[in-house]
Amino acid sequence: MRIFLAGATGVIGSRLLPLLVGAGHAVAGLTRSPEKAAAVRASGATAVVHDVYDGEGLTTAVVDFAPDLVMHQLTDLPDEVARLATAGAANSRIRTEGTANLLAAAAAAGAKRFLAQSIAWSPPAGRGDAIATHESAVLAAGGVVLRYGQFYGPGTYYESAPPAPPRIHVDTAAARTIDLLEAPSGVVVVVDPQ
């Protein structure tokens, strides 16, 4: 399968990339950082350096790759958990404008499948509308919404101890995502058993 992975160098994207390539998929990994493109290429994928907010350029990049599936693993979150409370607007923009641009690019490319990251917990006040818009748009396009629990493990906000449920180890989340590449349209909750 040809897969366009948006967010290929993020916390879960960096784990998905080698799993997808290892499973024999042809993968294009989107990153907005030229410095991170080498990591995408090192995993055996095609690096695409582009900004998701440039809709026209993004569409060209996705159409040029001609994917069967577009996977949205983009977030805009700070590296430090202490700054998380002030990052809501940027992450909401990814969920709304970024999602709209990726869906339009996938449609223009004729991609038959679309998977998108979401959350399995109630969002902080003021962020629920963006998540609802994001999920509704993905479902209206016949896509799959992956509601992940809070990630824990290396490279996450919770490296040494897991957070309260709903949660999932980031490596387990990546492995379970691979199993969902052909899931039917709908919402799938990806969390540790309780």
Rank of each mutant, 00 (worst) to 15 (best):
A116V: 10
A45E: 05
V49A: 03
K36V: 04
L103T: 02
G55V: 00
A105Q: 12
A104G: 06
L115M: 03
A28R: 06
A107C: 10
G88L: 03
D54P: 03
D51Q: 03
E35Y: 13
I131M: 02
A28M: 12
N101M: 13
V40L: 03
R32N: 13
A61S: 04
D68H: 08
A82E: 11
A105P: 06
A125G: 15
L103F: 08
A111E: 13
F65G: 11
E97W: 00
S33H: 05
D54C: 01
G88W: 08
A116Y: 07
A38S: 14
R113S: 05
E35P: 01
A125V: 15
T31Y: 14
W121L: 15
R32G: 11
A107L: 08
A111V: 01
V138K: 14
H50Q: 13
V27M: 02
R93G: 08
A87N: 07
H72M: 09
A107D: 10
A82I: 09
V62C: 00
R93I: 11
A116R: 01
T133P: 04
G29A: 14
A42M: 04
Q117G: 15
A89Y: 04
R95K: 14
F114I: 05
P67W: 12
L84E: 04
A130T: 13
D76H: 05
G110P: 00
S43K: 07
A38E: 15
T86E: 10
A66W: 00
P124E: 08
A89N: 02
A105N: 07
T86L: 12
L102G: 12
R127E: 15
G57C: 06
M71Q: 10
G88S: 08
V138A: 12
G128N: 03
D129F: 06
I119Y: 10
S118F: 09
A61L: 08
P78A: 09
G57V: 12
S122P: 14
D51W: 02
D79R: 10
D79M: 11
G29W: 09
Q73S: 02
E80G: 01
D79G: 13
R93H: 10
Y53R: 06
N101E: 05
A130P: 06
P34I: 09
R113L: 04
A37P: 07
E97Q: 15
G126F: 13
P78L: 05
S43I: 01
L77N: 10
R127T: 14
A106N: 05
P124D: 07
R41T: 12
D79A: 11
V27Q: 12
T46G: 14
I131Y: 05
V81D: 03
N91G: 06
G44S: 13
T99R: 01
R127Q: 15
S43W: 04
F114Q: 12
A111S: 10
D64G: 08
D54N: 02
G55L: 00
A116P: 03
G88T: 11
H50E: 11
L103D: 07
A105C: 02
A45C: 15
F114E: 04
A109Y: 07
G88N: 13
G126I: 07
T31A: 13
V40F: 02
A39N: 02
L77A: 00
V27G: 12
A47Q: 01
